[in-house]
Design a protein around this nucleic acid. Structure first.
Length: 270
DNA sequence: CCATATGTTAAAAG
DNA sequence: ACTTTTAACATATG
């Protein structure tokens, strides 16, 4: 689930409750989640330090550490959430799946893939049911494009409006613009009334500007209301559903390698 | 058993 | 050489 809005939520949770607490122990024994590190690598690097700041670019987040230590990179993958507990055991969850009824309220212990135990007795854990998330030291973010929430108009035009790949594939490419996932892409394309299948390079400048406008609006809405699931068209990504604006049938196909839904009338310009 | 899933990326194809 | 597409990754669920 985690796309830019959820990762921002997770980042805020870490910023509010995970900083300046001494790290007393680290469980980095999940060798897939912590790839390519070996068990003990993260523990050795982090014990005795504390997190001092939480950053995000696109769907990647990382924390600075005290004493000039390495950055702690966290990627939530397809199902990651951050769970922080206070010394008294109170839980705060970041990047939660608002509106997804399938996620059980109580997680199984084995879904916790990485744990920082603080000297005060609390913890910061990565809860990742599908195990495609990642924790690593000094993550390489050089391949990421500018953050989707802050990319400028000129840069957006140049990066998104080129190539023969479908517009949606272009939006999902994290090296073009970072932070857009499958649901947010559908939401934003619907808001901008653009056909996801159109070759990105064929868009007019006015269409790219409107797309960026709706991208920012869609992100703001999702951050404010609790995740990409709160988007207007998201509940209508299902067979038999209709466009909440015009009532025309929603249609489905694979675009950019991902299941894609769009309004057959307003976005059917191909 | 089959299909699907909010992400990334290496490999293959063009 | 560069861009685009596909498959694989690990796991859960309907």
């Amino acid at each position: 689930m985690p796309e830019l809005p959820e990762v921002e939520s997770a980042r805020q949770v870490v910023e509010a409750g995970g900083l300046h607490r001494e790290i007393a122990d680290v469980d980095d024994t999940d060798t897939y989640e912590c790839r390519p590190h070996q068990p003990g690598d993260l523990r050795t690097a982090l014990v005795g330090r504390s997190l001092t700041a939480a950053h995000r670019q696109g769907k990647s987040m990382w924390c600075d550490t005290s004493g000039d230590g390495p950055a702690l990179g966290i990627h939530l993958g397809m199902s990651g959430r951050i769970v922080i507990t206070s010394p008294e055991g109170e839980r705060v969850v970041g990047g939660d799946y608002e509106g997804t009824p399938k996620v059980p309220r109580v997680a199984k212990d084995e879904w916790y893939r990485f744990t920082l135990t603080f000297a005060d007795g609390g913890t910061l854990r990565l809860l990742d049911k599908r195990r495609l998330g990642r924790v690593r030291l000094d993550p390489d973010l050089s391949a990421l494009g500018p953050d989707a929430e802050h990319v400028g108009r000129e840069e957006f035009r140049e990066r998104v409006g080129k190539g023969t790949a479908p517009l949606k594939a272009r939006l999902l490419d994290q090296s073009v613009v970072a932070g857009i996932g499958n649901l947010l892409a559908d939401e934003v394309l619907w808001r901008a009334k653009l056909d996801p299948r159109r070759p990105a390079g064929e868009l007019r400048t006015s269409e790219l500007d409107e797309l960026r406008r709706q991208l920012r609006a869609g992100i703001r809405h999702a951050v404010k209301h609790g995740g990409v699931h709160t988007g207007e068209v998201i509940p209508h990504r299902a067979s038999g559903e209709h466009c909440p604006r015009c009532g025309a049938p929603m249609v489905r196909a694979t675009v950019g390698g991902r299941t894609t839904w769009w309004c057959s009338q307003e976005q059917g310009t191909l």
